[in-house]
Design a protein around this nucleic acid. Sequence first.
DNA 1: AAGCATATTAAACATTTGTTTAATTATCAA
DNA 2: TTGATAATTAAACAAATGTTTAATATGCTT
Lengths: 225, 225
Amino acid sequence: MNTNPEQTSVTNPRRRLLEAAGEAFAERGFRGTTVREICERAGTNIATVNYYFGGKEKLYRSVLQYSLNATMTKYPPELGLTERATARERLQAFVLSLILRLLDEGRPSWHGRLMAREMAEPTSALNGLVDDVIRPLWGQLESIVGELLGRRAEPKEIRLCAQSIIGQCVHYGRAKAVIVRLYPEQRFDSDGLKGLADHIMKFSLGALRQFNREYQRRGRALSRK
Amino acid sequence: MNTNPEQTSVTNPRRRLLEAAGEAFAERGFRGTTVREICERAGTNIATVNYYFGGKEKLYRSVLQYSLNATMTKYPPELGLTERATARERLQAFVLSLILRLLDEGRPSWHGRLMAREMAEPTSALNGLVDDVIRPLWGQLESIVGELLGRRAEPKEIRLCAQSIIGQCVHYGRAKAVIVRLYPEQRFDSDGLKGLADHIMKFSLGALRQFNREYQRRGRALSRK
DNA sequence: AAGCATATTAAACATTTGTTTAATTATCAA
DNA sequence: TTGATAATTAAACAAATGTTTAATATGCTT
C-alpha cells in the first residue's frame, strides 16, 4: 500500500513538464516545440518526456487535458457571481475572465493562449476541445447576449454578436507584441487589462443597444400596419 | 545582353517556392515548416531553397516581402473608392477587404494569415512588418473611426474602437476551423464573407453611434453648467 | 540491511532537417 | 556548334530531433 501523498508540489517533475510544455506549445505550437527545450524549461532530463508521458504527442494531449482542468479554475467565467446577477454583470465577468485568461502575467495565461492556438491550428485534439470547452463557453456567452438582445433577436444574430465580442477579447492575446510596439502607452498590467475589458464592454453594449433600438423601431413599424 | 523576359509565370520555380512557402508558413509558422514540405508543395528539388533564396531564413524574409507587395493588390483597403467616399463607405471597404484577405478561398488568403501569424509569433521580421504594413493599415482605420466619432473623441478611445473592429475581423481567420464545426450553417463562400463583413459593420457602427450619443449627452451636460 | 519499485540520467540510436557539393542538364549568345 | 552561364538534381554531410536503452540513484516496505 503506497501511502505517499500524491505529489502535487511544483517541485514535482511531472508537473513541471506539464507547465513548461504548456508555455512552449502555446508559444511555438506542437511542431515548433522540441522536447529538449521543454525539458530545459522544466529542468528535467530529456528521457522524462517518454518516462512520464510516453512521448511528445501524448505530452501534448496531457497538456491539453491539464489545461482543460485548470482553465476555469483561476478565472471562471462567472467570477463568483450569484444567480441573481444581471446579464450585464455576467457579460462583464465573462469578458474580464477571458481577457485575464489570455493576458494575465504569469504562468496560467498560457492556457488561454494554447486554446487559441489549437483553434487556429487544429490538431487531432480539436474535436475534444470544441466539445468540452469551446461549445459551452461560447454557448454561455450566447445565452448572455440573447438575454440582452431580448426575444426579437434571431439565433444567427445572437451568434454573430457573440463572435464579435469574443473576437475583440482574443485579439489582444494575439496581437500584444504589435500593440506594445505601436502603442507603448497601452499597459498590460492588472489595471491595463481591466481597462481593455471595460472598453470591450462599452463597445459591445453600445452595439447591442443599437440592435435593441432597431427591434423597437421594427416593432413600431409593425404595429402601425 | 539578356533579353529573356522576366519569368513571371506561375511555372517559374522561384515563384512557386514563394507561394508554397507562404502557405506553409501561414499554416505552421517558421519553425514548424520544413524545407522539404515546401519543396514538395512547390514541386521543386530541396536544394532550390538554397539556390534561389540562400536558405530557409532568407526564404521566409522573401516570402514576407513578397506578401507585402501582394497583400494590398487584390484587396486594397479602399477597394476602389474615390476620395469622395464617406467614412462609412470607407469603413465598409476596409472591413470587407480585411475579411477577404484572411478568408477568401484560394491562394492569396495566406498573406493575411501569415501576417496574423507573424503578429502572434514575432520573428526578427516583425519590426519591418509593423512599420510597413500594420502601422499604416491601423492608422487608416483609426482615421476613419476618428471621423465617425467626431472631434470629441479622445485618441485612446479611437484607438481602442479601431482595435475592437480589427479584432472582430481577424477572429474569423483564426477560429474558422472551430466555427465550421460548431456552426455548420455559417458559410465562408463569397456571400458568407460578405455577410460577416456586414454584421461587423452593423455591430461596429452601432457601437460608434452609442459613443456619439454619449458625447452629445456630455455636451448638453456641459452647456447646462 | 535487503529487496523491490520508481525515478533519474547519460549515452546511444534512428530518423529528420537544413545545407552543401558536385555532376548533369538546359539555356543562351556568338 | 561551341562555350559560358544558369538551373536542376541526387547524394552526402552535419546537426537537430524524438525515442530507446541500460545503468545508477532514490524511496519505500519488510
